[in-house]
Amino acid sequence: MDLADLPRDPLAPLSPDAVLAAVRDVARGPLARVVEAIDREGYYPRAELQQLAALGAMSAHLDAPAGRGDYRLALQAMAEVSRVCGATGFMVWCQAVCGLYLQASGNPALTGEVLMALARGDALGGTAMSNPMKSYAQIEGLLLKATPVEGGYRVNGTLPWVSNLGPGHACGALAGVVNEQGEVVREVMFLLRCDAPGVELRDCPSFSAMEGTGTYALRVKDLFIGADDTMADPARPFIARIRGAFVLLQCGMAVGVTQGAIDTMWAVEDQLGHVNQFLEDRPAALQAELDALTARVMALADTPFDPSVDFFIDVLDARAHGAELALRAAQSALLHQGARGYLLSSEVQRRVRESHFVAIVTPAIKHLRKEIARLSAEAMPA
């Protein structure tokens, strides 16, 4: 497919197979050519992200008119991108969940042109929900606080790192609403615009494998949030409704990074298979495990808003399995490649670091296991 002929409408009449073929072309063409710059130089792939958005890669899961309502396609597209570049796959997820927040809000001020601009890639955005997700799991406290004022809230606080940000970007964020005694009485979720008065983006220390992801420390001082930017107030019922879809979409990253690692194992099979046969976690076995996990994720994608606890536990378990499999596959890829995989320029070195990110990005493996244990205990009969 000629990339110059890519549609600028994410709802262009392409079949799912055609969308995936076009996403694959972008991933293996323009994106592959800049992957080292993303990883080593901190290049932010705006143009490549916008090409992917034009195909609907980051909006396929959204309901019409913004998307196709197809979570399977969204996960497959994210996996194709992550197979080439885990950092860009992560940004695809950031953009996808920002769209999820906007559409699920039901706020006409957010579900119209604001959502459509994000779906087209004209606007780019992320998610500042790492801290709130950890807060709900009682891992840390809320870092943004909202004080009620006439017409809305004044928000203050600092988040240490939020990704896929930059000038003109936005992200979904959550703050604890405080009473006159400074106690958090509920939470409010809102669209935080990076260019709004009171918002400051600060550079973070260099990140392993994620240097090109537009990750900043986000400082908010007296930011006014009114009705037009409010996603949910109170936020907890909203979070409960979208949490399965939020976590499930991350499985696209895990599948893609794992597949990329397996690809590099097969790449040396002709030359090194005679000795690699003595290693554990061989590519055929890893591929079979990945295919089974992918099938499981695709089945979950048919009902992403299932409200049951059992469904959410299944999603958390699939996400944890994906992270663990990515770690094993990347480590095995390094062993299969041998000395050539130890070169700093080797994509295997990048895969190892990307797999670490899949394992620690919120919800991290320990967070996932904590929630699975808590929910399983609560679901047990007395």
Rank of each mutant, 00 (worst) to 15 (best):
K221S: 13
V361I: 14
L344D: 15
A27S: 08
F357R: 01
P65E: 07
L6I: 03
G141P: 01
S206I: 13
R83D: 07
E289D: 14
L142M: 14
L327F: 07
L344P: 00
V26W: 00
D222V: 12
V26C: 01
Q250R: 15
V348Y: 07
L290G: 02
D9H: 02
T88H: 03
A146I: 06
K370E: 09
R236V: 15
V114I: 05
E80W: 01
G89P: 02
I365Y: 01
V348I: 12
R350F: 00
T294E: 15
P108H: 08
L279G: 04
R296M: 08
L49R: 03
I242F: 03
E36R: 13
L327T: 05
A123F: 03
H321F: 10
M1S: 12
K366W: 12
T230Y: 06
A240F: 10
D314M: 08
V149I: 12
A137Y: 10
N179Q: 09
K370C: 06
E347S: 10
D2V: 06
M129Y: 05
E183Q: 10
V220L: 03
S208A: 13
G244C: 01
A74C: 00
V92P: 00
H169R: 15
A196C: 07
A37T: 10
E324C: 11
K370V: 11
T158R: 11
G157H: 07
M116T: 12
G252H: 05
V315Y: 04
R40N: 05
N179L: 11
T111I: 04
E41V: 00
S346G: 08
R353S: 14
L143Q: 13
A330R: 01
E289V: 06
C94D: 12
L335G: 00
R353A: 15
P160F: 05
W93G: 02
E324Q: 14
A53S: 07
L100V: 05
A330S: 10
L343H: 12
V220S: 00
V361S: 11
I360T: 14
P237D: 06
D306G: 05
L223H: 06
